[in-house]
Simulated scan of single mutants.
Amino acid sequence: MGTLELKLVEENYYLRIEKIKQIKSNAYFVKTKDGKEFFLKVSRVDKEHVDFIIKIFSHLKNTSFKSHLIDFQKTIDGGFYFLDENKKVYLLCKWIDGRSADFRNVFDLRRAVSILHHLHLASLSFADKIEGSFYPSYQEVFRKKYLQVIQMKNIIHRKNSLGYFDEMFLNILSKFEDRFVYSINMIKTIENYFRKENRRVLIHHDPAHHNFIFSEKGVYLIDFDYAMVDYSVHDFVNLGVRVLKTNDWDRNIFRIYLKFLHDINISKKLWLQIFWILMYFPQEIWQVGLQYYFEKQPWTEEYFLKRLKGAERIQHGKEMIIKEFSGGCFKWH
């Protein structure tokens, strides 16, 4: 972080920085001259979504979930963030000493499941208030993503010569493209019934281990940059995939994870069927293609290839787990 940015932080929060240390690409540990410690974040999302996050916090602070939140520090003008000349959003909160969740530890895993479930329940009335807003169905989301996959193939085929990533991407698509189509057909079969039996909630949408902070005072859930209104099943699929990756696709750990979901009684009508279909959809393969062909992320070819091979391994792993654990739910018709 440059001198100009540091000066803006000091001016907007009326503090004097003694030490600053980068801990992620967009996050910093800050210690002030009077000994206070803060977490500074330069958000990757735009102002409109940050305003949405502030609304989320305002709602959750009036619920029992408030014990899992870290308060934002207010700026000198009473706001919860400030913008620099490039419209980047800066947020500051108290530093919490703690550790990230360990998804190899069943205690931590149970707590993560419990906290996500608590978030969903605490946000029901919040989600209801904005239920009038348009939220696409899973059918529409799947179709849009598959259309993008087709566009990626067209981009490749229009090239005069293919790079190694192009060839690898086409090769992997040839193995898994039918999964996109099958997922769309399956979700179409049951989604309307599912939506009648399940309510939308606020989902965190990024339940990575480092977003659960275990401290002496409790467990905190941080980084709501990707939060959205959706069904709880989406959060638990995301968490499930992370648990499997962390544990090298250990079936016994996933069996424990499914038991934790059963224990909190979230498996309403067709919930598990949707769970398995969302697992089956080649989300990770689509995402790498999106980052390479559409977003054009400034990563090396080597890094993109690593991510692509990782996405292929994840899809293989998910299908192995589905085959073993779906219990026939996946073939509902």
Rank of each mutant, 00 (worst) to 15 (best):
P136K: 03
F72V: 08
R199M: 15
Q287A: 11
F57N: 01
Q22T: 13
Y220G: 03
Y293C: 10
N198M: 12
F260R: 03
F142L: 07
E18M: 11
V89T: 00
F165H: 02
L69D: 04
F294N: 13
K153A: 11
V219A: 01
S161P: 02
F281Q: 07
Q22A: 13
L202V: 11
I20Y: 10
K31P: 00
D230V: 03
N211L: 06
I222G: 02
Q315V: 14
K94A: 09
E197L: 14
E131P: 07
N26R: 02
G35Q: 06
N211Q: 07
L270F: 02
H68N: 08
I285T: 00
K245V: 07
Q287N: 11
I130K: 08
Y193G: 10
S114K: 05
V233Q: 00
E11I: 13
W332R: 09
I322W: 10
N62Y: 10
S183G: 03
D77F: 14
S114H: 06
M279F: 13
K74D: 10
S174W: 08
P282D: 08
V219G: 03
F103S: 09
R179D: 14
D250A: 11
R307V: 09
K33M: 06
L278D: 03
Q22M: 14
E10Q: 15
H210G: 01
G289N: 01
L91F: 01
F281D: 00
G132Q: 01
S215R: 05
F194S: 06
K145V: 02
N105M: 09
F304Q: 08
M320R: 15
V141R: 04
I17K: 04
Q139R: 09
A112H: 05
I53K: 05
I314P: 03
W286L: 01
V241R: 04
E312M: 05
Y303F: 15
W95Y: 04
L162E: 09
N62G: 14
R200H: 10
G218P: 02
S232P: 09
L60D: 00
I222Q: 05
L305K: 09
I115N: 07
K61W: 06
P207A: 01
W332A: 09
F281I: 08
I155D: 10
K61R: 13
I56E: 05
F80A: 00
K318E: 11
K217M: 12
Y257N: 05
M320S: 15
F325Q: 08
E11V: 13
V201Y: 04
L162F: 11
W286R: 05
W286K: 02
I130C: 07
V42S: 04
I17M: 03
E312P: 04
V201P: 01
F224R: 01
A127S: 12
L272F: 07
K259V: 09
K88Q: 10
D166V: 06
K196Q: 15
N247Y: 12
D97H: 10
F39R: 00
R199V: 15
K296T: 13
F126K: 11
Y164V: 11
I184C: 05
